[in-house]
């Protein structure tokens, strides 16, 4: 079941940092286009852009390798779409590791400060 484009846009915004780490504004723009418009051909992705079809194809292949987008054959062209679930999972993964560290550091603090506050320390 496809998410509404509004929901998808929110997810993309929330995941913007994920794409910032990819270090490329073109890829971020591609993700935004794909999240707004559903499966798209390279022709459609290239239209209105200064970036060449060749360059966009290269970016899409890189993103496909890391699982962020996938392509399906549709007649003579490939249609590209965003793997939204991957984005959600990637963000959640970092969030949960982050919370795990929070919990561990609180346990560390409890250990070292408890010793420090005892009357004999």
């Amino acid at each position: 079941m496809r998410n509404s484009s509004q929901h998808a846009a929110r997810e993309v915004q929330a995941s913007a940092h994920l794409f910032a780490a990819l270090g490329d504004e073109t890829r971020l723009r591609l993700v935004i286009s794909l999240s707004d418009g559903g499966p798209m051909s390279i022709t459609k992705l290239t239209s209105g852009s200064r970036i060449t079809r060749q360059a966009i194809t290269k970016h899409l292949r890189v993103m496909e390798q890391s699982g962020l987008v996938k392509s399906t054959r549709h007649g003579r062209e490939s249609l590209w779409e965003l793997e939204e679930q991957r984005l959600v999972e990637a963000r959640r993964y970092l969030d949960t590791i982050s919370r795990q560290w929070d919990a561990a550091l609180l346990r560390l603090r409890d250990l070292v400060e408890k010793d420090n506050s005892s009357p004999n320390s």
Binding site: H17, A90, L94, W101, V112, N116
Partner: peptide, 20 residues
């Protein structure tokens, strides 16, 4: 680390001696 997906960084102040 919210602007950087490659790393998570945490800081905590521990009121105890450095050796501890």
């Amino acid at each position: 680390g919210c602007m950087n997906t490659d790393r998570i960084e945490k800081k905590i102040l521990l009121r105890a001696p450095q050796s501890r």
